[in-house]
């Protein structure tokens, strides 16, 4: 699903007067939507502009003075957060945390989802119902025992612990999403491959996987953004003090510099830049993934 093509319900206007009439009758809608657009854009734009303004000026003039055309801009804020405030290090940590915490769940979920969709074994449906039930278990339900478990495994406060926690928590949703996709693949296709003597593993690898790229992409993007944007797991499991991802780093900045907007604004945009690139380049998969993920 994308944001949908505009369905032309009405015939195109034929004459100039018709066109003018239509614009006038629709004026309230245009005005209302313009206000909606402003409300949804201005908060983000305001912070974006602020991230490029000299610290000394942010507290004396509002970012909206840009409409009067009298603001100065600088890259100092980004230089400062990336360098002395450690956001470059945190950016790298976010990548280190997110890439395995996306690849591993996609792999394990694809395996299990195929098993639930196309391999026969006893209690298959009951086990799948348990997976569906686990979808909603909040992270809070496992925090304390996981800290103990990871401590005894020697991975508490290490990237490994965070990868494991994110992978385990991604499983119910990923299995659910991919299994529901795999089940729609034509049975004949899989039977035909079986008759040709392909092993279950080969059917999975050479028939099912190539056909499932859109579903895998939706899940991968959803999971990537979930981990990238995560705060709670990182607060508990991320390596301190040098392994913190950007979300926890911004949380720290808020504690120390609650009104240093030049730092907070630049740091926030560093978190946002990757999701925004994903949003604009892979919009279709992105919306699909997020809508499907609403069960989580």
């Amino acid at each position: 699903m994308t944001f949908g093509e505009s369905v032309a319900v009405e015939a195109p206007p034929r004459t100039t007067s018709e066109r003018i009439t239509r614009v006038i009758t629709k004026a309230p809608i245009h005005i209302a939507l313009a206000i909606v657009g402003l409300i949804w854009l201005l908060p983000t734009i305001g912070l974006l502009i602020t991230s490029f303004r000299p610290a000394s000026e942010i507290l004396s003039t509002g970012w909206w003075e840009i409409f009067a055309g009298r603001l100065n801009f600088t890259l100092d804020n980004y230089q400062q957060v990336l360098g002395s405030q450690g956001m470059l290090n945190s950016f790298i940590n976010s990548v280190i945390i997110t890439v395995p915490a996306t690849v591993l769940p996609v792999f394990f979920c694809a395996l299990a989802a195929y098993g639930f969709a196309w391999v026969d074994f006893p209690f298959r449906d009951s086990l799948f119902l348990i997976v569906v039930g686990l979808l909603l278990v909040p992270i809070q339900m496992v925090l304390i025992p996981l800290v103990q478990l990871f401590s005894s495994m020697g991975v508490y406060g290490q990237f490994t612990g965070l990868w494991i926690a994110h992978t385990a928590f991604a499983l119910p949703f990923g299995i659910f999403l991919l299994r529901n996709f795999f089940i729609t693949l034509p049975r004949d296709l899989i039977e035909a491959a079986k008759i040709d003597g392909a092993s279950t593993w080969n059917i999975f690898r050479t028939v099912v996987m190539p056909l499932s790229v859109p579903a895998l992409a939706s899940f991968a993007i959803f999971q990537f953004l979930w981990v990238w944007n995560d705060l709670l797991m990182a607060l508990v499991f991320a390596p301190r003090p040098n392994g913190l991802p950007m979300t926890t780093q911004v949380q720290n900045l808020l504690g120390t510099f609650a009104t240093e907007w030049h730092l907070l604004a630049a740091a926030s945009f560093l978190i946002m830049v990757v999701p925004l690139i994903v949003f604009f380049s892979l919009q279709r998969y992105f919306v699909q993934g997020l809508l499907a993920g609403s069960v989580k």
């Binding site: 908060p43 983000t44 305001g46 912070l47 953004l225 990238w228 944007n229 705060l231 950007m246 979300t247 911004v250 949380q251 808020l254 907070l264 604004a265 740091a267 926030s268 945009f269 978190i271 946002m272 999701p275 925004l276 994903v278 949003f279 992105f286 997020l290």
Partner: peptide, 11 residues
């Protein structure tokens, strides 16, 4: 929906 709640909170 794409933005981390952390960034949304700062905004």
């Amino acid at each position: 929906m794409a933005i981390a709640a952390t960034a949304l909170g700062v905004i």
